[in-house]
Amino acid sequence: MKINGVAIDDTFAEAFTMRVARLIITGRNPKWAREAAVKLTGFATSVIGCKCEAGIERELPESATPDGRPGVSVLFLTMDKESLPQQLIVRIGQTVLTCPTTACFDGLPDVPDRLAVGKALRVFGDGFQASKVIGGKRYWRLPVMEGEFLVEETFGMQKGVGGGNFLILAGDADAALAAAEAAVLAMTNLPGVILPFPGGVVRSGSKVGSKRYRNMIATTNDAFDPTLRAITESQVPAGVNSVLEIVLDGTDAPAIEAAMRAGIRAACRPGVQGITAGNYGGKLGPHHFHLRKIMA
């Protein structure tokens, strides 16, 4: 299969079931909503080192937020149920609570699994906090020096998908980066998906474990490192001198598929020789995203 002359490899991306929450952060204006969201999702690229993965899903207009102010929707994922509330409590407490003008709402209100995040954060109020029930939902009002921070008592948690991916194989680094940027742009603001890595792009794709260091969980994906083509079991095709990876997390498999379709199509541009994907032989992750099936 070829798209715009770019070969689509007959392979699949292998992804995992994770736990996901959606946060709606609002602020007096888009700047402050985004400031909080950027801090909240900072250092949240991979569960390997960050214990969580998070990213901005999309910016929301006033009409789409609970309090009628500009907002940002954030997806937040962990590998298990227990660590999701822990991460949310710590991160919201340090990045949204501290950010001027912001409020924090649940973006999965219909999900039955509830995490008592606001309920835990309320104790920052040192006994001066107050709760209000509005439309059947409880909110906590925490007094802060600026005025008050409003946070919803519980946040929904559901199963999500982490680790959707595709690799861009290009003739040089400039072409790889341009294609990756085009792919990210095409996937930006798509519902139910985040790209947790810097600018949505990974240059250091990894393999499980290590060939040399026993205690390493993940090490460089030498099969796709062009500089190691001559000394490892390389999968880098001839003529390819740079590889970039796009990693996607989402609320469900259809959302990941839709984003991969848009991203791969945008990445198929001059200078790109092929698109492939990372997997573990299909033995580890329950979600398999077959590139040719997605792009058919």
């Binding site: 309090d67 209000k132 439309g135």
Partner: peptide
């Protein structure tokens, strides 16, 4: 105490308008 914009009041009033 002070003069400010209590964040829950817009939420409440918008709820009353909608509901």
């Amino acid at each position: 105490a002070c003069t400010y914009q209590p964040p829950h009041v817009p939420l409440l009033l918008r709820y009353l308008r909608a509901r």
